[in-house]
Structure formats: C-alpha cells, structure tokens
C-alpha cells in the first residue's frame, strides 16, 4: 500500500513539474525544473523496481543533460518570448494524440497484473536461464549485454555518433591551465568539497563499472559518473586543468577505442567459429565465456561513454558566452 502511495505522490509531483515547465518563461528556471523532473522519474523508477534505469536516468537526465542545458542557456538567452499566435493547431494535435492513447489503454492489461502477456512470453526465460547460462545475478545486465547485446552495441554507436556530431558542430579549444572564473576561485567550500569528492566519484565509477553484474550499474552508468567527476573538477578548478590531464586527442582515441573493443569482441567470437557476439565461445567454459564477454563489452561501453561525454562538454564550453 505504501508503494502505491509513493507512486501516486511522485506522479502528482511529475504532473506539477511538467505543467510548470510548459508554462514558465525563464529558461534557467525551466532547466532546473527539467532536472527535477528527471530526478522524480528516477525515484519513480526505483519504486517500479527498475533500479538500473533509475541510476541511469539520475546520472544522464538529471546530471549530464542539465549541465548541457545550463551551458546552452548561458551561451544563448534566458528569456523566452511569447509565441506570436495562439497555438490552436498544436493544442488540437496534442489533444487528439492524447485521446488516441487513452483510447488505446482501454484494452490494456491492468497495471501490475502478473498475468499480462508481457510477463508470460519472452521475459520469464531471461529470469530462468540467466543464473545457469550466464551466471550473473543481475538479469538486466545479462539481457542488456548478452541476449540483446547487439542493441547495446547500437546504443554505443548512437552515443559515438553524437560525439562525432558535436565535435563537427562545436569543435574544441584548449584552454590555459588557470582559466577558471575568478568568482569561483573565491568559493573555498566548493573547491574543498570538490577536491574531497573527486577521487570518491572516480572510485564509485569503477565500482559501478565492475559491480554491474551483481547490483545496479554497468558501463553506461560508470562512464557517465566518471565523466561527471571530471566535469565537477572543471567547474571548480577550470577546464584548462582537466584538459591537461585528459587532452582532447586522447579522448578522441578513447571514444573510438571503446567502440572498437565492443565490436572486437564480436569479431573475435566470429573468428573462433561462433556467431557475432557469441560470448560463450570466448572461453572453454561457456559460463566463463559469457562473463568474460560481458566484462569486456561493458568496459568498451564505459570508455566510449566517458570519452564522448567529456568531448561534448569540451565542445560546449569552448564556445563564447
């Protein structure tokens, strides 16, 4: 019962935040509300048993996306002009679309129904087969990295594409070492806390990277957390200092290398006589092979994601205000 209560409260808060986002005209405020919206969804995902998704949404939606939005607002404008015409057509389209969707819910299985078709066909097999054939407790990891590992390769390719795209659009510019904002230099508390947290964040990223088989986490979340650590450091101590540790050229290599590791695992399993991404062939024991394959591709994912996010961040901050 408490679960339902939390669920309803979160849905209510999401609605209020959503309406506020649609109505408000200060883009800075809207950005903060968007971050809250994302954090609320992450909380809802926890209630709905999707812990991996919650971790990802919190890191990507509430974290990175907010940073990018803030960087954009700082480089464009904070104030939104009123639209010229009353948006009657959009209103009509949205009401019609929403009505169609609600019509579609009428034959849906009820929320939480264990006998819904979605829970009866493919999914139970994942839960049964995973302990024996893959030997990792986190079924989300086993489906993500092995059963549907090819989708995940596509997903890494998508983020790689975004990295290449932002690079083409915004380029990069290496800054001097002590280039940070003098205002921030005065904020001692921020700087001390950053210095304390920076190693902890990187450590946590490594934990999330290698513990994803057992608990929530994996390459994506780890890559994002890793990059966030450096972004935090850049905010407090200037981008120049970060660029000195991880220069742009290295990031470009990392971004390609992660994807190549992933594809390499696939090609290696082909060369060993299996299908593309058939991990069980990678070792004598099929379960060990699966675990090895999953570890390697998660590593590839982590490297590419961390590199791409830093490249995107470098690109955004290289443009003038």
């Amino acid at each position: 019962m408490e679960e339902h209560l939390i669920n309803n409260v979160l849905l209510g808060l999401l609605m209020m935040t959503g309406f506020a986002i649609a109505r408000m005209r200060s883009l800075l405020a809207v950005t903060m509300l968007t971050s809250i919206y994302s954090l609320l969804s992450a909380s809802l995902f926890v209630v709905l048993d999707a812990v991996d998704v919650a971790l990802t949404e919190a890191a990507i939606g509430a974290g990175i996306s907010t940073i990018l939005l803030l960087a954009t607002v700082a480089r464009t404008t904070d104030e939104e002009k009123a639209p010229r015409h009353t948006p009657l057509l959009p209103l009509f389209v949205v009401v019609a679309t929403g009505a169609a969707l609600i019509y579609g819910t009428l034959d849906m299985p009820h929320y939480g129904d264990p006998m819904a078709p979605i829970h009866l066909h493919v999914a139970p097999t994942y839960l049964h087969v995973t302990p024996e054939e893959i030997g990792v407790p986190n079924v989300v990891t086993s489906v993500l990295a092995s059963f549907r590992g090819y989708d995940t390769l596509g997903e890494v390719t998508v983020i790689f594409t975004a990295g290449a795209g932002v690079l083409a659009l915004l380029g990069y510019r290496t800054r001097r070492r002590n280039s940070q904002n003098p205002e921030i230099r005065k904020m001692v508390v921020l700087r001390v806390i950053t210095k304390l947290f920076f190693p902890l964040i990187l450590l946590f990223a490594l934990y999330v990277q290698f513990h994803g088989d057992y608990g929530p986490g994996g390459g994506f979340q780890a890559g994002v957390i890793f990059a966030t650590g450096f972004i935090l450091y850049a905010l407090a101590y200037g981008i120049g200092n970060v660029q000195r540790i991880i220069p742009y050229g290295k990031l470009r290599i990392m971004m390609a290398a992660g994807l190549l590791i992933y594809i390499g695992v696939g090609i290696e399993s082909m060369l060993l006589g299996g299908k593309f991404l058939e991990y069980r062939i990678l070792a004598d024991d099929p379960v060990t092979g699966q675990q090895l394959g999953i570890m390697l591709i998660e590593l590839g994912v982590g490297i590419t994601v961390a590199a791409v996010i830093l490249i995107i961040y470098y690109g955004f901050v290289s443009r003038k205000h």
């Binding site: 066909h121 493919v122 097999t125 994942y126 087969v129 092995s146 059963f147 549907r148 590992g149 090819y150 989708d151 299996g274 299908k275 593309f276 991404l277 058939e278 991990y279 069980r280």
Partner: peptide, 13 residues
C-alpha cells in the same frame, strides 16, 4: 536468418 550472439529467436536479436 542470422542469430546475433547465437541466442535463439525470440530471445535474442
């Protein structure tokens, strides 16, 4: 038909 990761349809891609 090619089963990626050698997972049988419909569990794999």
């Amino acid at each position: 038909s090619y089963a990626l990761g050698a997972w049988a349809v419909p569990w794999g891609i």
